[in-house]
Design a protein around this nucleic acid. Structure first.
Lengths: 215, 215
DNA sequence: ATTTTTCTCGACACTATGTCTACTATGAGG
DNA sequence: CCTCATAGTAGACATAGTGTCGAGAAAAAT
């Protein structure tokens, strides 16, 4: 609660030129504080005051770094959306069968909800107001959807999946919505690892049936 | 914007005894104002001031009727959750085949999202903070889930549906999540009637495959 | 060493929430 | 018709948060 400054990214070599400026460190400190607070309370309950004192600066100095609280969330989201896309991509390429791929995808998504739940929920809420954030968020989910639709089309072309309608795209959108809400709900409660695996199995089973019919 | 008072529920016979008291009318006027404003802006952007002037009372008088803005939403939700349960029940009993039932359910849900989208989204956001609201909301969705799980179990008992796993309950929860998010997303954009029917068909197709395998 | 850019903070103006207190209608019982 | 309890009303106040401005300190570049 009182780890004032420099809880940010590390500077191993001591004050080299070209290293992150003092301001960059403060910016990171704000982000870290926000991240930490998001674990304890919902986004809307976090004040600029908490953010700034957490980062060891005055409230008005905060505005040197960010325009608003929403901007902080956006910056935080930038950080994690890359991780998300990345981990999905690797999960999918490692899989050998459709069943594996879908299980891996769901495991990854759920892990992301568990790790970043408060942030992702905050983004969803803010997106209703903030146009820029909505567009950004949209881009992230579209990636997932597009990848899914492509896989379904491949499977259909190979004659393994049931033909449409629904189109591969519609299927991918709806299933992603299912994953989304399921993950969001899961992130609101503690939930044991066993529960999570159970959920993953359920989502995978539904997905397989939706794409292939009964196994 | 300036229809000060008595935009509330009508009092056809003029000031009869046992009729709603003046205060009840004002309370309704607040609710109506809130409802109206929810159509134009997100819940969090509505101020007590707008609510009270919309109802033709002073800001401080507002607090005679409601404790907070969240209380207004809760009251509004009470109104509509009854409609929701009701319309789902009638939609399901009128159906003759599973396909009909699922289509009807989805049509009803989507219609509710279109009619009450801003309110339902507001509830979802507030539920993260407000315990009472969360419990209430939970109760509403549980109704839908339970009804769905029961239907699936009946179909399995009759040998028509694919057996589990996933259990009927798990299936119902996950599919409801899909409907939920799909409806929520739809309510954020205009969307033609044709788009809605298309979405309903997609959701129905997935549901049928998830329960029965291919048709 | 000085100039420029980065960073800092106190002071201010503004908006919103919620409480408290005293006042004014309203209407039921005498 | 009075009269008095209660429902309803609003102004003043206390509090909390947001965001802006301008004066200046600290750091970096020249």
């Amino acid at each position: 609660m009182s780890e004032t400054k420099s809880g940010a990214t590390q500077t191993p070599t001591r004050r080299r030129r070209e290293g992150p400026s003092k301001g960059d460190l403060k910016k990171d400190a704000i982000l870290d504080t926000a991240w930490q607070l998001l674990g304890t309370k919902p986004m809307t309950a976090i004040t600029i005051d908490e953010l700034s004192t957490g980062a060891g600066i005055s409230r008005s100095s905060f505005y040197f770094y960010f325009d608003s609280r929403a901007a902080v969330i956006r910056a935080l989201a930038d950080r994690t959306s890359v991780e998300l896309s990345q981990s999905i991509r690797t999960a999918l390429t490692a899989a050998t069968s459709p069943h594996d791929a879908i299980t891996a995808l769901n495991r990854t998504l759920l892990a992301r909800w568990r790790a970043n739940g408060p942030l992702m929920r905050a983004m969803d809420v803010l997106a209703e107001n903030d146009d820029e954030l909505r567009a950004f968020w949209r881009g992230v989910t579209d990636d997932v959807v597009r990848a899914g639709a492509q896989s379904i089309e491949d499977e259909r072309a190979a004659g393994r999946a049931l033909p449409g309608p629904p189109s591969a795209m519609d299927l991918a959108v709806a299933l992603t919505n299912m994953y989304w809400r399921s993950g969001q709900q899961a992130s609101l409660e503690p939930g044991s690892e066993k529960d999570d695996e159970h959920l993953i199995e359920t989502l995978t089973a539904i997905t397989l049936r939706a794409i292939y019919g009964q196994p």
